[in-house]
Simulated scan of single mutants.
Amino acid sequence: MSDDVNIRFVTRQDYEQWLPLWDGYNAFYGRSGATALAPEITRMTWSRFFDAYEPVHALVAEQDGTLRGLTHYLFHRSTTAIEPVCYLQDLFTSETARGQGIGRALITAVYEQARRAGAARVYWLTHETNHTAMQLYDKVAEKSGFIVYRKLL
């Protein structure tokens, strides 16, 4: 990764650059056009980053004054640990920034924030077709073997 990439907490001033990354992330997972997230979800997500009572956090990768990537993570309780658990919910880099180590740097930064919070572990999900990302994930974490089931209500 280039030395001039700074991983830092998102600020309110980042919204105009964060939004296209957020939109890109959602488009990647098919949430665009008719299936796009409702604007109020994006507004609420953004506001949670700045609410001290919310367990949701955001980091960004900045290079030459431009945001190149984002990650959102949250802390929650577990029935199998006393310490909090960290769920890395979203990770995205701009197309032009891929292959430069920014995704790895964002994951590493989440690991550091989880350590500071006393978390017992960090985990995340990805789609089974996201082979490019899995090449990185296989280097920085271990597959748990669990399969996710869900039911939309």
Rank of each mutant, 00 (worst) to 15 (best):
Y15M: 01
Y15K: 15
Y15L: 08
E16V: 10
E16A: 15
Q17G: 07
L19I: 06
P20N: 11
L21D: 02
W22Q: 10
W22C: 08
W22M: 10
D23E: 14
G24H: 09
Y25F: 15
Y25K: 04
N26M: 10
A27F: 06
F28T: 09
G30T: 08
R31F: 13
R31W: 02
G33W: 12
G33V: 05
A34H: 13
A34Y: 09
A36D: 09
A38P: 12
P39C: 13
E40C: 11
I41C: 08
I41S: 15
T42W: 09
T42D: 12
R43I: 03
M44C: 04
M44I: 05
R48T: 10
F50G: 08
D51M: 09
D51L: 07
A52C: 03
E54M: 13
V56G: 04
H57W: 08
A58R: 04
V60T: 07
A61S: 13
A61E: 03
E62K: 06
Q63Y: 13
D64K: 15
G65W: 08
G65K: 08
T66M: 06
L67V: 14
R68A: 13
G69R: 11
G69N: 11
G69Y: 11
G69E: 04
Y73P: 01
L74H: 15
F75Y: 15
F75L: 12
H76I: 07
R77M: 01
R77N: 06
R77W: 03
R77D: 02
T79H: 10
T79W: 11
T79D: 02
T80C: 09
A81N: 10
A81E: 13
A81D: 04
A81R: 15
E83H: 12
V85D: 06
C86E: 01
C86Y: 03
C86W: 02
Y87R: 07
Q89V: 00
Q89T: 09
D90C: 02
L91M: 06
L91H: 07
L91E: 01
F92D: 01
F92W: 11
T93K: 05
T93A: 12
S94V: 03
E95I: 05
T96H: 12
R98F: 10
R98Y: 11
R98P: 05
G99H: 10
Q100L: 12
Q100S: 13
G101K: 13
G101E: 06
G101D: 06
G103C: 08
G103Q: 11
A105T: 03
A105N: 03
L106I: 02
L106F: 09
I107N: 01
I107M: 04
I107K: 01
T108C: 01
A109V: 03
A109E: 03
A109G: 09
E112G: 02
E112P: 00
Q113D: 02
Q113L: 01
A114V: 01
A114F: 03
R115M: 00
R116N: 05
A117Y: 04
A117N: 06
A117S: 07
A117L: 00
G118C: 01
A119V: 01
A119H: 02
R121T: 06
R121C: 04
R121D: 00
Y123Q: 04
W124Y: 05
W124R: 03
L125R: 10
E128G: 11
